[in-house]
């Protein structure tokens, strides 16, 4: 029997193949990340140059031959308001539903049906959520006679956030070791005390991570808002504005990017810049939150 040398031999066919496929997968990975890099840098360059202090304070000017497009204050505030409404609806419902699935249900047909439904809802195109709220709220004028409104926009986005919140709550709670539940029940705590005081606080950070990701997703949605919140050029000043058309960054980009005027196009770039930066920030924040969770778990 011939003994092969123990040293690494480059020309061996298995080593050549190994090198080839390693480089191939690295190449594919690079191509996969390219769009992100291009999109982000393009927006940073195009949009970053448009950032001025007035951008954050002024109303946008209606498109026309006016050279000054104004600012995006109403859209910025509108996005915040609409996302807040969406969170106010979807976080309680979603966390409650997740608690039911993880803590109370016993894997029967009802909970299987809900889990299946949540997965389907997660796959529903966002425009469908918009059309649904349009049919339910906007066209029926059911909200005190108002049609397009920030409130309706928030509802549409909450439909999109709901599956994320339910799923992360469900999964976050399932990660809590059963021993902890037994410990609490074993000293005579009721189910509800156990969930409220032990299980939920333990899973808090993973739930928060999911909620934050859900918010980040909802904040960038355009289609559902076109059908529900529409757009507005005017400052948001009071509660009653919730019942009227409300601007948002995503719809502002959609509207102004299509305008033939250069001033409006620039405003759209600036809005894209702010939207991308805020969503990136939120995503990074949720990463930090998740990393922090793992660290505390290891203790």
């Amino acid at each position: 029997m011939i003994m092969n040398s123990l040293y690494y031999q480059k020309k061996l066919s298995r080593n050549v193949g190994d090198k080839f496929f390693t480089s191939l997968s690295v190449f594919c990975a690079l191509i996969a990340i390219l769009p992100l890099i291009f999109v982000v840098t393009y927006i940073l360059i195009k949009g970053g140059s448009q950032i001025t202090p007035e951008l954050f304070t002024l109303e946008p000017n209606p498109p026309g031959d006016d050279l000054d497009a104004g600012g995006i204050n109403p859209a910025l505030v509108g996005t915040l308001v609409i996302t807040t409404i969406a969170s106010l609806i979807s976080i309680p419902v979603g966390v409650g539903g997740g608690i039911y699935l993880a803590e109370y249900s016993n894997g029967g047909p009802f909970s299987k049906f809900i889990r299946f439904g949540v997965n389907v809802l997660a796959g529903v195109p966002s425009i469908i959520a918009g059309v649904f709220i349009y049919a339910l709220i906007v066209s029926t004028k059911i909200l005190f006679g108002s049609m397009y409104s920030g409130l309706a926009g928030g509802m549409a986005l909450s439909i999109l956030m709901l599956p994320t919140v339910i799923k992360t709550t469900d999964e976050g709670l399932k990660l809590v070791p059963n021993e902890l539940r037994y410990a609490s029940l074993g000293i005579g705590a009721s189910m509800y005390t156990t969930i409220l005081k032990i299980t939920l606080p333990t899973a808090f950070r993973s739930i928060a991570t999911g909620v934050v990701l859900g918010i980040a997703r909802a904040a960038g949605e355009t289609a559902p808002l076109i059908f529900t919140a529409l757009f507005s050029y005017y400052y948001i000043v009071g509660i009653e504005d919730l019942f009227y058309e409300m601007g948002s960054l995503a719809v502002l980009i959609y509207n102004f990017a299509l305008e033939p005027y250069d001033a409006q196009n620039k405003l759209a770039w600036a809005a894209s810049f702010i939207l991308v930066i805020s969503i990136l920030t939120v995503n990074i924040f949720s990463r930090i939150l998740a990393a922090f969770t793992e660290k505390t778990k290891r203790v």
């Binding site: 037994y182 410990a183 000293i187």
Partner: peptide, 19 residues
Amino acid sequence: PVEVRRRIGMVFQQPNPFP
């Protein structure tokens, strides 16, 4: 059962203090 567990406490195999 909650009342039963208040009067009959339990210590488990793995130490499981609350966080």
